Structure formats: C-alpha cells, structure tokens
Simulated scan of single mutants.
Amino acid sequence: MRIMAFDYGTKRIGIAVTDPMQIIATALTTVHPLEFWDFLSTYLAKEQVSTFVIGKPLQLDGTASESAHHVVGFVRKLRQIYPKIAVVEIDERFTSKMASQTIAQSGLKKRKRQEKGLVDTVSATIILQTYLASNA
C-alpha cells in the first residue's frame, strides 16, 4: 500500500506518493482543485493507499495561517469520502521555500524551474518525506 501526500492550494494541489513498500517519496502531479476528486477516485481505483498526509499551513508562531481554513474543509471531505484511509496532518512550514531551493539547485533549465506546479509537487514530496522520516 502507498502513502499519498498533498500540498493543498486554492489554485493547485501538489501530489506525491510512496512506492508500495512506503520507502521512497516521489512527486506525482499537480491537479486543479476542481479536478482533484475525480483524479483521486481514478487513482484509488488502480492503487491501494493506506494513508493521506496533508500539509497543515502554520505561521512561524505555530498558529493557523490564513489559508488553514481551506485545508480544514479539504481534510473534512477526505475523511468523509474515504473513511477507511487514515488522514494525517503535518506542519508544512518552509516546504515551499525548501521546494524552491531544491528546484533552483536541481540543474533544471530555467523554463522548467519556472513552472508553477513544480513547486507544489516538490512541496508535496517534502511533506511526504518529512512524514516518512518521522515514522522511521
């Protein structure tokens, strides 16, 4: 079974998954929020997922950020539609910044580095790696 992570945004949702042995986190894709539920349904018809990991947007002092209410609704809907899949929220502070730094150091061509969805998928991958490391 895989673990799936989401970097939720109102314009894009970055998605990452593990391999079936839950060892390696890999960027999967970026999906528009309006297309997300169809995408997830199709994905889950083909792959078994044991856990959803969602980045929880917090401010530096640990309080909820302005975008946190969007994530609350997203998590509620995930739990409602997929009650048998565990949902875990983890602190996502600095993941976008880390993702941007990782992309900048990656050696990708400038045009590829500027793709907006790339930061979201890399952020989702960092969220998933953080979760895997915390459970190692």
Rank of each mutant, 00 (worst) to 15 (best):
R76M: 08
Q59I: 11
E92S: 13
T102N: 00
G9S: 07
H70N: 14
A27C: 05
R79Y: 05
F39L: 10
F36N: 00
S134A: 15
Q114H: 11
L58A: 09
T29V: 11
A99K: 00
P33I: 04
S65L: 07
K116H: 13
Q22H: 01
A45L: 07
Q105Y: 08
Q105R: 14
I3N: 01
F52N: 09
Y43W: 09
S134P: 03
M21N: 14
A133N: 15
T121W: 03
L28Q: 15
R93Y: 02
Q101V: 06
L78D: 03
M98L: 14
L132E: 03
A45C: 03
A16Q: 08
R113T: 07
A27R: 13
T18I: 11
D91P: 04
V88M: 01
K11A: 15
M98E: 15
P83H: 06
D91E: 06
D19M: 06
A86N: 08
Y8N: 10
R111C: 06
L44A: 01
Y43M: 09
T51K: 11
V88L: 03
K109L: 13
P33T: 01
T29H: 01
A86T: 00
A16P: 04
A136L: 10
E66A: 13
A5V: 07
L34N: 13
G62D: 11
A136P: 12
L132D: 01
V122K: 03
M1E: 14
V17R: 14
Y82C: 07
V88F: 00
R79P: 00
L28K: 15
S67F: 05
G55D: 04
E92L: 12
T63Y: 08
G55A: 03
A124I: 00
G14Q: 10
Y43S: 02
T63N: 15
T42K: 11
F36D: 02
A5K: 13
I13W: 05
G9Q: 03
G55E: 04
I54H: 00
E89G: 11
E92K: 11
V119W: 00
R113F: 06
R113A: 09
I24F: 12
R79K: 15
A16R: 01
F6L: 08
V75A: 11
S134Y: 06
K56Q: 13
L40Y: 05
P20E: 15
G14T: 09
E35C: 05
E47L: 11
S100C: 01
E92P: 12
D19Y: 07
V49S: 09
R12K: 10
I54D: 01
V75K: 12
P83W: 06
V88P: 00
K46C: 12
G62S: 09
T29D: 11
I3K: 04
A133C: 04
M21G: 12
T130I: 05
V87Y: 04
A25T: 13
T63R: 15
Q105P: 00
Q101K: 14
Q59R: 15
A45V: 03
T63C: 02
M21Y: 14
F94I: 04
I126V: 09
L78A: 10
I126E: 05
A99V: 04
P83S: 02
V119L: 09
K11W: 03
V122L: 12
F6R: 12
T30P: 05
I90R: 08
H70K: 06
A5G: 10
G62F: 12
G14I: 11
D120E: 02
Y82Q: 02
T125C: 12
L132V: 08
V119S: 00
V49A: 07
